[in-house]
Design a protein around this nucleic acid. Sequence first.
RNA 1: GGAGUCAGCCAGACAGUCGCCGCUCGCUUGCGAGGGGAGGAAAGUCCGGGCUCCAUAGGGUAGGGUGCCAGAUAACGUCUGGGCGGCGAAAGCCGACGGCAAGUGCAGCAGAGAGGAGACCGCCUUAGGCUUCGGCCUUCGGUAAGGGUGAAAGGGUGCGGUAAGAGCGCACCGCAACACUGGUAACAGUUGUUGGCGAGGUAAACCCCACCUGGAGCAAGACCAAAUAGGAUUCCGUUCGGCGUGACCCGCGCUGGAAUCGGGUAGGUUGCUUGACUGUACGAGUGAUUGUGCAGCUAGAUGAAUGACUGUCCACGACAGAACCCGGCUUACCGGCUGACUCCCCCA
RNA 2: CGGGCAUUAGCGCAGUCUGGUAGCGCAUCGUCAUGGGGUGGCGAGGGUCACAGGUUCAAAUCCUGUAUGCCCGA
Length: 127
Amino acid sequence: MSLKPFGYPKELRLLNARDYQTVFNKVDVKAPSEHTLLLARVNNLGHPRLGFIFSKKNIRFAVQRNRIKRITKDYYRLNRHTLPNMDIIIMARKGVDQLSNDEVRSMLKKQFNKLAKRASKLTTINN
RNA sequence: GGAGUCAGCCAGACAGUCGCCGCUCGCUUGCGAGGGGAGGAAAGUCCGGGCUCCAUAGGGUAGGGUGCCAGAUAACGUCUGGGCGGCGAAAGCCGACGGCAAGUGCAGCAGAGAGGAGACCGCCUUAGGCUUCGGCCUUCGGUAAGGGUGAAAGGGUGCGGUAAGAGCGCACCGCAACACUGGUAACAGUUGUUGGCGAGGUAAACCCCACCUGGAGCAAGACCAAAUAGGAUUCCGUUCGGCGUGACCCGCGCUGGAAUCGGGUAGGUUGCUUGACUGUACGAGUGAUUGUGCAGCUAGAUGAAUGACUGUCCACGACAGAACCCGGCUUACCGGCUGACUCCCCCA
RNA sequence: CGGGCAUUAGCGCAGUCUGGUAGCGCAUCGUCAUGGGGUGGCGAGGGUCACAGGUUCAAAUCCUGUAUGCCCGA
C-alpha cells in the first residue's frame, strides 16, 4: 500500500450493498450514543473501511446531511491510523443536524475512541 | 433631500495546509503537472417540450385541460402588446375575464312573495253596518309609491298623471338591438335610428361552445456476461386462441397454448452532457422574441465529489446542495449595487 | 428520482362526490343505582374541520398554494 497518509480513496470505504450487509449480518462491536450508532466487524484487509447511513428521515435537509457527512469523512481520514482494522458503519439519529461543526467533531472523537477501546478488548479475548 | 414604482445584477473576499470527483498531457499502472468542479431558486413537482420504448401514434368514444383579442415560442396554464373591469394622487399594479336568450339543477333560515313573483302592514275604492260626524268594523276589488324580510325583491331621479298608484306618459341618466365610423381583432364612440326596458344570481353546479390533448417514464431504454435455457410428461389447438400496445372499441405488431416435474439468478457498461447553450457586434420588431457574423466550452457523481482547518479584512455572510436535459410557474431568502420613472419639499 | 394517498373532539373514524345542521364509538365530567368498586341507566362539556389565499349570499365540502405524515416503483 502506498496510500497518501491522510487520503480518502475508495479502498477505505464501504462501496456497495453487500459490504454493508456483511457488517449487519455479524456485528462484532457496537458503540451507541444519543446522536449516532456505530456498528463494526473485524476485517482482514489490513486497514479499516467506513460507510455511513445518514437517512433523509433522520436528517431532513440535504445541506445538513452533506455537512455531517463531510465532517465525518474529514475526521475519519485524519484519524484512521488510530482505528482498528474493521468495517465500520456510522448511522445518524435524529437531532444530529442541530449540532455545530465542533460539536460533531468532539462527538465523533468520543465515539471512535469508544469503538477502538471495545475492539481492543475483543481481540485480546479472541487471542 | 424624502417617499415610492419598475427592470436587472451580486450572494463574503484573499492566502496557506490537508483532502474528494471528472478532463487533458507526461511517464507509466500509480504518481506528477495543468485546468475545471452546485443555484437563483439546484427546492415544490404545478404546467409545457426534448429524449426513449410501445406502430411511423392511426380512427372513434370516454376522460382531462385551457378560456377577452392579437402576437411570441419547440411548446405551455408562460411571456409580450392591446381591450375591458378594479385599486392608487402618480409612476404603476391586480384580474380562472366565453356562454345562465339551448336544457337541467341549486338558493338553508327569514319573508306575503326567491323568478314572466308577490297584497303581511299600508294606500285607494265598491257594497253594507255603526258613529261622539273625527272616523271605525266587515266586505267585492284596485295598487308595487312607502314599511318590513333577506346576500339578492324584476332600471334611477324629477315632473305630469291618477280614486290611489304604476314606464302609464314625458325629460335627463342608465340599458338593449340594429346601422354607421375607427380598429386585424377584442372592443370603442359628445354618431344615428328603434325599443318603455320583457328571460335576476350561481357554470372554481351539471352542462353548452371554441381550441388543445395517445400512454408511460432515465428505476425510460440499449449493450456485454450470465440467465429466462436446453429438457420430460399430459391435455387442448393449428382461419381459433394467447401475449403486447395498461380507460374502452377498432386497428396494428408478435406468437401455438396450458398444467406438472426438474434446474436456476450476479452484476457491469452505457444513456450522461455541445445545448431551443453562453458571450459579443450589427440588423428586424412598440415588445415578448428573432436573423447573421465572430469567439468560447461552462459539474457529470453512482454509498454518490464540490469540503475542513488556520490567519487577515469587512458591509459579519440569508434561503439553501445538481442526479437525463431544457422553458416557465410557485414557494423560501440576511443584505448590497446599478439604471429608468412618479410624487412631495428646499435652493438657484 | 418518479408515481400516488391522507390531515375533522384526548384516541379511532363518518360527513367532502351532491356547499347551508359537524356527527358516531371509546375516553372525560356530573348524576342515579351499590355498603364501596366494576358493569349499567340518564345527562353534560369538549372542534379556528392542518395552514394561507380565492370563488360564492354562504366553504370541513369547490379551486390554488404551503406544511406535515404515509404508501408504491431497483
